[in-house]
Nucleic acid binder design. Structure first.
Length: 719
DNA sequence: GAGCACTGC
């Protein structure tokens, strides 16, 4: 394959490296109404150097060895960009109830600030809680800090993430996921265990962090009285939107930490590229021809299919004899649905005379860090799923990334040494991109959020102090969804949680799934519903390698159920359990071991919650019709009806849709299809489906279906 | 007869 034009790049050289480049391009890093910059002049010595957290056997080493080790750690701590700012920082923390700290990754803010507070003994009256958007981060940072403080994990320093916790009564520094703290707020809205709450990575604006902003702000104000201990709050962020945060927290002061990073040389497209996939590929080969072996490339593209096809093309082109003189190319796709062993492949060190090219989704933006990347090639695109309140369903689209994401991607190169970033868009296009990604809460289905807020005790949702208010449409849609499943009673200006709604809020699930579980006892099949819901809550359990799709489908044929995908998933889960959760068995059947194991864990947690809520967990054994009835009780707003012309229309909004080709029901024409998701990709597809009976609909939601016409058409199977 | 980014409880 030939025909790649020389990619038209223009070089934007910057002697000062990455961070000043950031400000050159108009980011607001160093502009704020009430902020100032804390400079430091330490140039050498990496904060985390090459030593991995947890690899140093503290407990095993002798006293002298330990003393030497602690000395080394102290030296490392003192070389962090944050260290010279320690005194100033503490003064500000003392003076103010809320402080905003800005610092890039590597500044040391996440590991050091909690320790500084502890060193002052400002945590006497309560624990310091630090939130993270990701579990691995909470876990590994806690490990690192425990090591720095020379204590065992779970003693002075602990962590708490879903399925895993290591804390004790002695714990003063507690690293948690943001979702975990949100869940804690349900039983304790004042968050009274904590004297400090630090919301880290606030710029990521996860739904949980956004909701916590409001809850923490309210808790702080409600604890500001003589009979309660005050709550101190720190917001930590990597970049931008500083004034937005500061305004929200009553003009809290902003402290800037100057991080230090290896320089990255930037290249922009000279002119607009109309095919980002093609221009990305030609850039890869341009780099490949010009740079020495072992200089690895990280490429950002959008989705699984695109990545598999580009990986294939690059391998093909690399076979071209004209490239024989260049290093051997090792191409690795990287996305979340990939089986673990293939994900781990990207960490394999590059051999002499070789180069690895990793072609990734945005998973490599934050979640997976690959060492040794010299080049980043950024297509400037991302695939995102967003909620459309007027249809009530999600849409999946390829979009342009924001400037913040572009910098995030750029920073994945040159983490150990100077690096290069090739952007597949012009500098003008870059400037025209949005500064920040749209916060997740503005493009999500709010049903879970509203249920949680009500469970926390927030009375007036419409006036809840969101840092960015969701649109009235999406609030209305969520309120409607919660009402029809009986989780809330909505009057003109008030929302009231029903007893069932209170129980639903106990489950870490979408409310409609929790509702299906609550219907279990009535039909004696909670056991089966829990299994299906646990699988739905996990990533896909199917593995479809690009070349072996037919083989995979044939291998799984034996699990297929005429009742639909939900029952098929139940059968697979049961078979997985019978195999004693065997990895080989999964491999032979083209099933994802990691995700099935995750479902086992989710299910275990759901069983515990059922026990706590006195929900009996009974099994219906072989007759699985009751299971589909329970699913209908939770998902009856997602049902489509067969029309005379063979098409389907949703009963909720009369939207035209089709059965997804990956569904076991594909090819048949059942009269009523219950679907889990409606995926809009050019056309609307019903994703994970079951056959249901029209009569069940009236049974589970008479109110809802009184106003919605059901024709009771006959199934066209076999016609 | 099309093709699901990522994270979290």
């Amino acid at each position: 394959m030939t025909g790649f034009q020389e990619p038209p790049f223009k070089k934007v050289k910057n002697e000062n490296g990455f961070s000043s480049d950031v400000s050159n391009d108009g980011q607001q890093c160093f502009k704020s109404n009430n902020g100032y910059i804390m400079k430091n002049n330490i140039q050498n010595g990496g904060p985390y150097s090459k030593q991995c957290a947890g690899t140093i056997g503290l407990e095993k080493s002798g006293a002298t060895q330990n003393a030497g080790h602690m000395k080394k750690i102290l030296k490392q701590r003192h070389s962090l960009p944050i260290f010279p700012a320690r005194q100033k920082l503490l003064e500000e923390l003392k003076k103010n109830d809320c402080v905003i700290v800005i610092g890039e990754t590597g500044s040391g803010k996440t590991t050091q600030i909690p320790q500084y507070i502890h060193e002052e003994r400002w945590d006497r009256k309560g624990t310091i809680c630090i939130t993270q958007p990701r579990r691995v981060a909470a876990l590994s940072i806690a490990k690192r800090v425990a090591e720095e403080m020379n204590t065992n994990l779970g003693a002075l320093v602990g962590y708490s993430v879903r399925f895993e916790e290591s804390v004790s009564s002695a714990t003063k520094l507690k690293y948690v996921t943001d979702g975990m703290l949100l869940r804690e707020a349900i039983s304790d809205p004042l968050l009274s265990k904590y004297s400090w709450i630090i919301l880290d990575e606030a710029h990521e604006r996860t739904v949980s962090t956004d909701v916590l902003f409001g809850i923490v702000k309210a808790a702080q104000s409600n604890r500001n009285c003589p009979d309660k201990d005050p709550l101190k709050v720190i917001i930590m962020s990597a970049t931008m939107d500083v004034d937005h945060f500061s305004n929200y927290f009553n003009n809290a002061p902003v402290l800037y930490l100057e991080g230090r990073q290896h320089p990255i040389e930037m290249f922009y497209a000279k002119q607009k590229q109309d095919d980002y996939v093609l221009s990305t590929m030609s850039t890869v080969f341009q780099i490949h021809k010009e740079s020495p072996a072992q200089h690895d490339i990280l490429v950002f593209l959008t989705g699984q299919e695109e990545i598999d096809s580009v990986a294939h093309s690059i391998r093909q082109v690399a076979k071209d004899l004209s490239l024989a003189e260049f290093p051997k190319l090792r191409v690795h796709p990287l996305y979340a649905a990939l089986p673990s062993h293939q994900q781990l492949d990207v960490f394999r060190e590059t051999a002499p005379g070789e180069r690895k090219v990793i072609i990734s989704t945005n998973i490599a933006e934050t979640s997976i860090t690959i060492p040794g990347i010299k080049y980043v090639v950024d297509s400037g695109r991302v695939k995102i799923r967003s909620f459309n309140p007027s249809s009530g369903f999600d849409v999946l689209k390829v979009k342009k990334i924001s400037q913040a994401q572009a910098w995030q991607r750029t920073g994945r190169a040159g983490r150990e040494a100077a690096g290069y970033c090739y952007r597949g868009y012009t500098q003008e296009e870059f400037r025209a991109m949005a500064l920040n990604p749209v916060p997740e809460i503005l493009r999500s289905n709010l049903a879970s959020v509203i249920l949680q807020l009500l469970a926390v005790g927030v009375k007036n949702i419409l006036n809840f102090d969101f840092i960015d208010k969701p649109s009235p449409d999406s609030v209305r849609e969520a309120v409607e969804q919660l009402s029809v499943i009986g989780a809330i009673i909505a009057s003109s200006d008030n929302l009231e949680l029903t007893p069932a709604g209170r129980r639903m809020a106990q489950f870490p699930l979408e409310p409609r799934y929790a509702k299906a579980i609550l219907c279990g006892p009535e039909h004696g099949c909670t056991d089966e519903v829990l299994t299906i819901v646990a699988v739905l809550a996990s990533e896909t359990i199917f593995v479809n390698p690009s070349g072996k799709k037919e083989l995979a489908i044939r291998a799984r044929q034996k699990f297929h159920s005429v009742e639909g995908d939900h029952i098929t998933m139940l059968k697979i889960f049961r078979a997985f359990k019978s195999s004693k959760e065997n990895k080989m068995w999964c491999h032979e059947n083209f099933l994802n071991y990691r995700n099935l194991s995750y479902a086992v864990e989710v299910r275990r947690q759901l069983v515990q919650i059922c026990q706590r809520c006195n929900i009996p967990v009974l099994s219906c054994q072989q007759n699985l019709e009751p299971v589909r009835r329970c699913l209908t009780a939770g998902l009856f707003t997602s049902v489509a009806e067969l029309q005379i012309d063979g098409k389907y229309l949703t009963l909720s909004s009369k939207q035209e849709c089709s059965i997804h080709p990956a569904s076991v029901l594909f090819g048949g024409k059942p009269a009523y299809v219950l679907f889990t998701d409606l995926v809009h990709t050019g056309k609307a597809y019903m994703h994970i489906n079951s056959i249901v009976d029209a009569d069940w609909l009236y049974e589970v939601a008479p109110e809802y279906f009184r106003t919605r016409h059901i024709k009771k058409v006959c199934s066209a199977v076999g016609s």
